Amino acid sequence: MKIAPIILDIEASGLGAHSYPIEIGLALPEDRSYSRLILPEPDWTHWCDEAEAIHHIDRDLLRERGRPAAEIAAELNELLAGQIVYSDGWANDYSWLALLFDAAGSSARFRLENLRSLLREEQLARWHPCKDQITADLAAERHRASTDARILQLAVLRLNEGVMPVAAGHEERLIAQMAELDALTLSDLIAASRGQRELLRLRERHTALICRGGRILAEYLEQHLSAYVALRQSSATHWEIVAINIHPWYRGTGLYRRMLIRTLAHLLSHGAETLTSQVLPGSEATIRFHEKLGFTREADSPEQIRYSIRVEDLARRLRRI
């Protein structure tokens, strides 16, 4: 029996730029767990009612039962010193954990890594069906930190032990969801391109990308695809963002930045040195964000604008915004 990895999950006040952690949970080896509500700092004022409807933690509960950031940071360091801890929502959890330790005036003595680094490529295609099955098996209440962490831990173990069969049609479902999001957000831009880029062609391109070993970083909120980044590797040190899309409901929430942080984590873990990105002409918000991050505009065509950046420069820019 393999030793279970340590999994961390954080519930937060929302997804906005000023969101903060409100609950932290750990799934530890030997079926042990850790869970704490976090007392908000005086300047932690952001609150999202939609997020509260998901995690069912209200501000009165945090004031009554939350523990100070310094206390929780000390407990985490005592439990986890020198160890690697894994998170499924690495981009968000990394930011919230850093905010917690900043408030405590200390530094984490453990390392937070992306949970997906524990899985092989063929296991990633079975990840969401596996989690859903475990949630159903446990009849678990989702969106509480320690429960979510336990589900993630069990999913990793099940996949690594080969118990979960391949979920037929997972790729087809993902491609269909990506096509639906494309239809919602890109129809006007596609029509403006005079038929040179049709939705059917986009769906076919997503299919071809997956078949040729491309990587899709997908973000799900309320079990719906809210964002994706489609990546492919063109050389040992060079990757390309083939497509990136965010559901309109989640624009302006910081989700675009978090998807780029997830992309950056993937690039760093694969030794990437340079990145190019393809953007649809007319996608002004995406163009502005690329230029804000310091991407160099290399080439324009009726179908795409091509940007490039060194990965180390992207990491530096993302830390500043």
Rank of each mutant, 00 (worst) to 15 (best):
S193M: 15
A230M: 02
L154Y: 10
A168R: 14
Q177F: 03
A191M: 07
H270Q: 13
Q177H: 11
G254R: 13
A243W: 02
S235I: 07
E161K: 03
H170V: 02
A272M: 05
L255Y: 10
S226I: 01
L152V: 09
I261L: 15
E219V: 11
Y228T: 01
P248L: 03
A191S: 08
S269Q: 14
L181D: 08
I175W: 01
L209V: 04
L200I: 10
E198W: 03
Y256D: 04
M259P: 04
L225D: 09
G254I: 05
A179L: 07
T237E: 09
Y228K: 01
S193L: 06
I190E: 03
R194N: 12
A272W: 01
I210S: 11
E171Q: 15
L174K: 04
E273R: 14
A179H: 10
N245I: 00
L154C: 01
A167P: 10
V156P: 07
G213Q: 09
L181G: 11
L231Q: 04
E273N: 03
A167T: 04
I261R: 14
E219S: 13
R173S: 08
S234D: 12
L186C: 09
A168E: 14
L225W: 10
R262L: 13
L264C: 06
A192E: 11
R205M: 10
Q153P: 10
I190Q: 12
N160L: 15
A227Y: 04
G195P: 02
H270Y: 04
N160I: 01
H170S: 14
L159C: 06
T263F: 00
E204K: 06
W239T: 06
V156C: 11
G271K: 07
H170K: 11
H206F: 14
L200A: 14
D182P: 00
A179M: 02
T274I: 04
L260D: 06
E161Q: 13
G169L: 05
M178C: 15
L159E: 03
L267C: 06
L221C: 08
A192N: 10
Y250C: 06
R197V: 13
T263Q: 10
G271N: 05
I246K: 06
A155V: 08
I244F: 11
R232A: 08
E204W: 04
S187T: 12
G169T: 02
R215Q: 09
R205D: 12
R194E: 13
S269V: 00
I216P: 00
T274H: 08
R158I: 00
N160E: 12
L217S: 07
H266W: 12
R201V: 06
I241W: 01
N160P: 01
T274K: 09
L260C: 09
P248G: 07
S269N: 12
P248C: 00
A272T: 01
R232K: 12
N245D: 13
T237Y: 11
L186W: 05
Q177I: 00
S226A: 15
G169I: 02
L202P: 00
A191Q: 12
S234F: 01
D188G: 02
D182Y: 10
L221H: 11
C211N: 15
L152D: 08
Q196Y: 05
A191N: 08
Q177P: 02
